[in-house]
Design a protein around this nucleic acid. Structure first.
Lengths: 148, 148
DNA sequence: AAACTCGTCCCTCACGTCAGGGTTGGTTGC
DNA sequence: GCAACCAACCCTGACGTGAGGGACGAGTTT
């Protein structure tokens, strides 16, 4: 059995002591476990250029570093905003570019502003949805009460 | 041109004075206008047994009564709860059956309770999503601030 | 004639699911 | 000391799903 088997079950996967001694690469299953995403989803994200493994094993296994995991976590945070995968990719590279502090920040910041606007718009939409959902839930509750 | 043209735009569709003189049937376009759903969506709902026109014209046009419009409004209220069309249909008939006060209410009420539970669960999920969305939005705002 | 509607068909998005085969790495048998 | 084996893991590819969107050519209403 492989070392993975030890981490497969509830044996702690803590910082570098047992599991993956910092700097080591993990394969897709471990990434899925840590991010809560499905293997299929992670592969799908790759198909769409969102998260590309840093390496492949001899036999073709995807190998990821902490970097990719972080990227996936960001994506998870973006999801409720309802952006498409394409938009998420754009935003991710946009943020990276901004961090890289390359020349013409103007355009970048402009696009960032647009994303921010879209985000707040979506937030208000979500609030509205939530209100409707709550309303319907209480309607159901009343019906329940009525027919008791 | 149909009388609809007047109502097509923000002319109020108020109680039976101008528009559709109570008791009259309307065709799909008018229903779409009133509910804010697309024609395609309404037809799609029919395909799935959710809302069936009370009648058809000689030539096959769908004709709806206020009843159907009400049903569509209920569906609209359900949507944020994330139920599938099948579940929505079930819930709709369930509510109708309950109103009809037929025999074995026990089972019906039980199912209703399940729906209510699902609804509240979904509400908490929505709240969580909203929180994440808000969090990300402020993250974006901070980035914007930082690169100003 | 203009506006409206019909049914049919293919498209989208973000995955789920299934099939069939390959890889990894530890343990056995020789 | 090394081939065989095994379980767990992973691969690609293809098709399915849910909830519609869009386009089309033809028919209907007004």
């Amino acid at each position: 059995m492989r070392g993975a088997s030890a981490a497969r079950h509830p044996v702690a996967y803590e910082g570098g002591v047992t599991g993956t001694p910092r700097g080591e690469l993990m394969q897709i299953g471990q990434v899925a476990e840590r991010t809560g995403l499905s293997l299929r989803t992670i592969r799908f994200y790759e198909e769409n250029g969102l998260v590309i493994p840093t390496a492949r094993s001899e036999g073709g296994f995807r190998l990821y570093s902490e970097n990719e995991v972080a990227r996936l976590e960001v994506i998870k945070r973006m999801k409720p905003l309802g952006f498409s995968l394409e938009e998420m990719q754009e935003l991710l590279t946009l943020l990276a570019d901004l961090n890289a502090a390359t020349g013409d920040r103007e355009q970048l910041v402009d696009r960032l502003r647009m994303f921010h606007e879209a985000a707040t718009a979506r937030v208000t939409a979500l609030k509205k949805e939530l209100a409707v959902a709550e309303g319907f839930a209480t309607t159901l509750a009343e019906r329940l009460d009525a027919s008791r």
